[in-house]
């Protein structure tokens, strides 16, 4: 399991070196290209502010009122039986539906339990290991007006469930 720790440490520098070296080898003005790309980052962030505000208000009202605790309390016997911590259930349910809602929920969980707590790490891993399933389905099938999606949704939800289970398992093995 040390290998995984090393991957986490070396992944970023290796990606940096590879990209910069390939840019230089093609004779690109590396820094100018970097700036050109960076500007896009600003508009990406501006665009996510409105949904983040709306969703973080809803999530914090839901948590501060005690409604979230009620749900966690209600589902905890079942979740404990499956082996998934009840605290991450809301995130597991939001993850396939909305990217900004699950980002807001992950942030909320990390604030409540700590980034380096087991719950915080499971939430981070869940957030990072899948995409927004229903959004992807909507744009790609919508683009070519497919009506009958066959087994795609079921297969996608199976993959999402496995990602939740695997996140809980790998974080428990590594960090508990």
């Amino acid at each position: 399991m040390d290998i995984l720790g090393n991957i986490s440490v070396y992944a970023v520098p290796i990606v940096f070196i590879t990209i910069l070296a390939s840019g230089l080898s093609k004779g690109e003005k590396v820094f100018d290209v970097f700036l050109e790309g960076s500007k896009q980052g600003i508009s990406t962030i501006i665009r996510i502010i409105p949904p983040l505000v709306g969703l973080m208000v809803a999530i914090s009202v839901f948590r501060a009122s005690g409604a979230l605790d009620l749900i966690i309390y209600a589902v905890s016997p079942v979740m404990k039986f499956i082996g998934i911590p009840p605290e991450v259930l809301p995130l597991a349910l939001l993850r396939p539906i909305s990217g900004s809602a699950s980002l807001a929920m992950t942030t909320d969980i990390i604030k409540a339990y700590g980034a380096d707590s087991l719950i915080g790490r499971i939430a981070s891993t869940m957030m990072g290991s899948t995409e927004t399933t229903f959004y992807t389905l909507t744009i790609y099938f919508g683009a070519i007006s497919i009506r009958d999606t066959g087994f795609t949704i079921i297969a996608a939800l199976i993959a999402d469930f496995v990602s939740v289970a695997a996140s809980v398992w790998i974080c428990t093995v590594l960090f508990a």
Binding site: S8, A11, S163
Partner: peptide
């Protein structure tokens, strides 16, 4: 969490 995220995905 990079390594764990790779494994989970």
């Amino acid at each position: 969490i990079i390594g764990p995220i790779w494994i989970a995905s």
